[in-house]
Design a protein around this nucleic acid. Structure first.
Length: 556
RNA sequence: UGCCCGAUAGUAUAAUGGUAGUACGACAGAUUUUGGUUCUGUUUGUCUAGGUUCGAAUCCUGGUCGGGCAACCA
């Protein structure tokens, strides 16, 4: 293929068409509108990459707007974490805005609607209002307050603002159509009374606008050109348009896409909050959580997440993405950037019987074989006794086992070829030592032995090994779609975290940089846990390496 | 059984009336001092029934299946 296919998603097509027609002078302004009532997760990342990406692609801008219209659930802690996560992902918003900054304007919009005879104060209880809306198959009926005069509505709404009524005593409703087949148009609530402290406006207000009377209006105030949200807001769109039309304000347009679902995890803030509150995980940033902060602590990079969000595409069809694609994206990134190190997670001792007692050598290994020059080398001490991985030895191996077994030879990475001669067992019959002889002329880089071995294994010198803690993570749930279960918590994977209290690593790892990814050769990608105690290092496994041998073994 | 949205390989996503393509996965092979990486190849798809058309994944109609909508949440 000579010229690159552009292959636009449906939003890019809409925007390009708008630009072609000169709509808004070709201006593109999107917004990312989180409610500060929880931490951002990978689903938000899709929306962030989409909104910021669209603006970048079309020379536009993106506002960050906190949708803070419900003081009961919203907190400043969440505002800070959200800003931090967006920056970490690599995006910078044009303006930091809050719906609560528009409360006065919104109040004015409500007055305008009342004056046009398009809104009324309703004294009904929540139950009465629900009943007044009817059901999807039956039209609603007006409540006794629907035909109050403009003057009375004005007076009552002002009294609501002035705190004359308790919570729930009255609401402001749009006067549209109680028989409309779209439930959202059956006189939707616009304002409710909540005598609650707001994280930004304090106690200034005791009435707060509902989502439908805040979101579209905020879009309009900011002159957002393309307001991109998820599918569940499709039925709200007629109301979004109706309010803008009646208010005669800037005509922002809403477009909807299908939210991200990942298998083997949950994505709703309510469920994630439950996992945190009920201590199924350590917190919002537990490395098993699909939150941005969890993925960060796990060792995912911003580039890998951005890349993932681009690969999954954007459409209007419900989807469940295989978490394997996320893993592919982080491996792809880390393979190119992670420095290689050796670590033994499940050690057994290997003794080189023909290597002089007390002798040691300093060998060297390139940091990154994926880059020309290897990004330098580090020293690796070698000696007569080594730790190797227990699974790299088998007494009675199957035919295609390319590791250590009596009579077989392997290459010790960056070192020598060794041949297994003997094993030492304890009283219970388990192997405690593997005795080998090494081939002196097979040293890495100056091998004149002429020997060819199929396998190469990693190792750490017993005399120089450093002890660290390693945490291995697995999927948090045992079923593909936990949200579809009766009780999603019943399918929590009890083995999602495995802690290895003492693993042996090469000494250079004591200099590991926080925030950097390391490949423990043949074992996976790891990163320093940001909450390691100062007296010991803890490494989190980001993801395993692809393991075709393990897959082969499973087939048998 | 009211209204709305959707349906293309296992999972996603293109093809905008003219050769059904791409990525991930799976499978096979080559290379490899990581059973990693890289490279090559193979496999699998238009929900269904009609209609319009020289020609339909695409347009029309009916059906089927999936999802959403009746919070003083967003």
């Amino acid at each position: 293929m000579i010229n690159e296919e552009k292959s636009l998603n449906f939003l890019e097509e809409i925007i390009e068409e708008d630009i072609r027609k000169g709509k808004h002078g070709g201006r593109v302004l999107t917004r990312f509108p989180p409610e500060p009532n929880g931490y951002l997760h990978i689903g938000h990342a899709k929306s962030i990459v989409l909104n910021f990406g669209l603006a970048q692609k079309y020379n536009g801008k993106t506002n960050l707007r906190f949708d803070d219209t419900n003081p009961v659930t919203e907190e400043t802690e969440y505002v800070d974490s959200i800003k931090n996560d967006i920056r970490w992902l690599g995006f910078q918003w044009t303006e930091e805005l809050y719906t609560s900054d528009y409360f006065e304007i919104l109040y004015g919009y409500a007055i305008k609607l009342i004056k046009k005879g398009l809104a009324y104060v309703d004294d009904s209880t929540p139950e009465e209002i629900a009943a007044s809306k009817g059901t999807p198959t039956e039209p609603g009926k007006p409540t006794p307050y629907r035909d109050r005069s403009v003057e009375e509505n004005l007076r009552l709404f002002e009294a609501m603002r002035d705190g004359k009524f308790p919570d729930g005593a009255k609401v402001l409703r749009a006067k549209i159509d109680l028989a409309n087949p779209n439930m959202h148009l059956r006189d939707p609530l616009l304002y409710r009374i909540k005598h609650a402290h707001h994280h930004r406006t304090g106690d200034k207000w005791c009435i707060y606008p509902m989502y439908d009377f805040a979101h579209g209006q905020s879009d309009s105030i900011e002159q957002i050109t393309h307001s991109v949200c998820t599918l569940e807001f499709v039925p709200h769109r007629p109301l979004y348009d109706w309010l803008i039309e009646q208010l005669e304000i800037f005509p922002s347009k809403q477009y909807e896409f299908a939210r991200l679902n990942l298998n083997y995890t949950v994505m709703s803030k309510r469920k994630l909050l439950q996992l945190v509150n009920e201590r199924h995980v350590e917190g919002w940033d537990d490395p098993r959580m699909p939150t941005i902060s969890g993925l960060r602590r796990r060792g995912y990079t911003p580039a890998s997440i951005r890349n993932f969000c681009e690969r999954i595409g954007v459409a209007k069809r419900e989807n469940i993405i295989d978490v394997g694609l996320l893993e592919f994206c982080i491996r792809e990134d880390l393979n190119k950037t992670a420095w290689r190190r050796m670590a033994v997670l499940d050690p057994v001792k290997l003794v080189i019987t023909n290597y002089p007692e007390g002798r040691e050598e300093i060998l060297s290994g390139e940091n990154n074989p994926e880059v020309a020059g290897g990004e330098g080398e580090r020293d690796i001490p070698f000696g007569r006794e080594l730790w190797i991985e227990r699974e790299d030895f088998m007494e009675n191996p199957p035919k295609k086992f390319f590791r250590l077994a009596p009579g077989l030879m392997v290459r010790l990475k960056h070192a020598y070829i060794v041949k297994c001669d003997d094993v030492v067992k304890d009283a219970t019959g388990s192997v405690i030592e593997i005795h080998c002889t090494y081939i002196p002329e097979s040293k890495s880089g100056e091998d004149t032995s002429g020997l060819k071995v199929k396998g190469t294994i990693h190792w750490v010198s017993v005399a120089h090994a450093k002890t660290v803690e390693i945490r291995l993570y697995d999927r948090l749930f045992n079923v593909e779609n936990p949200a579809a279960e009766e009780d999603f918590k019943a399918s929590i994977n009890p083995d999602s975290l495995q802690i290895i209290k003492s693993a042996y690593v090469e000494p250079d790892l004591l200099n590991a940089d926080p925030g950097k990814g390391y490949q423990f050769i043949r074992k996976g990608y790891f990163t320093l846990d940001t909450k390691s105690p100062s007296d010991k290092l803890v490494f989190n496994r980001t993801v395993t390496l692809r393991d075709t041998w393990a897959k082969e073994m499973q087939k048998e």
